[in-house]
């Protein structure tokens, strides 16, 4: 067992964990942050996307120990019903949500893209979202929603 410190959604945590624990499991099981999903366990689907120190990562591929000392944003740290993030608002309004399993990862990838570049091109949006699989929407409305959020964010 080992101690790690994480800042998750601006809250500090000190955790005693197994060195083999994945960041995904620590978020879901130890912190109860169920918005981060597991779809494949091998970094292909992006459902477990979280933002670690300003970068999107697949939390199924990261050991919690590797994230020691990091600042982490999960979907629970992005917006709420009173004040949704522009990406969340756009996803809802455009109709980019169907089954919703990929949605938290999609929202985080989009948010991180717009944090880095407020006016991405269509190609940049597609590339930024290409690590997140969706089986329902055909991506069409997801890409439109990210575009809309980029326009409304400014």
């Amino acid at each position: 067992m080992m101690d790690i410190k994480l800042m998750v959604n601006n809250k500090p945590y000190t955790l005693n964990i197994e060195p083999s624990e994945r960041l995904l499991d620590v978020l879901r099981t130890r912190l109860g942050l169920m918005g981060t999903k597991e779809g494949c366990g091998e970094g292909e689907c992006g459902a477990c996307t979280v933002i670690v120190d300003g970068k999107t990562v697949n939390s199924c591929l990261v050991l919690a120990a590797q994230a020691n000392g990091s600042e982490i944003t999960t979907i629970e740290g992005v917006g709420n019903r009173r004040k949704p993030h522009p990406v969340q608002k756009a996803f809802v309004e455009v109709g980019a949500v169907q089954c919703g399993f990929c949605t938290p990862g999609m929202v985080l990838s989009a948010k991180n893209l717009l944090d880095k570049k407020s006016k991405p091109s269509d190609d940049e949006i597609s590339v930024a979202m290409s690590g997140n699989l969706c089986r329902c929407t055909g991506y069409d409305k997801i890409l439109r929603a990210v575009k809309l959020a980029s326009q409304e964010g400014n």
């Binding site: 494949c40 091998e42 292909e44 689907c45 590339v127 290409s130 969706c134 055909g138 991506y139 069409d140």
Partner: peptide, 19 residues
């Protein structure tokens, strides 16, 4: 039996769709 070897379309595989 994995999404790394059973490939489904990504955002880069899907074209502009007019419905």
């Amino acid at each position: 039996p994995a999404l790394s070897s059973y490939l489904i379309p990504t955002a880069l595989d899907v074209p502009n769709i007019e419905a």
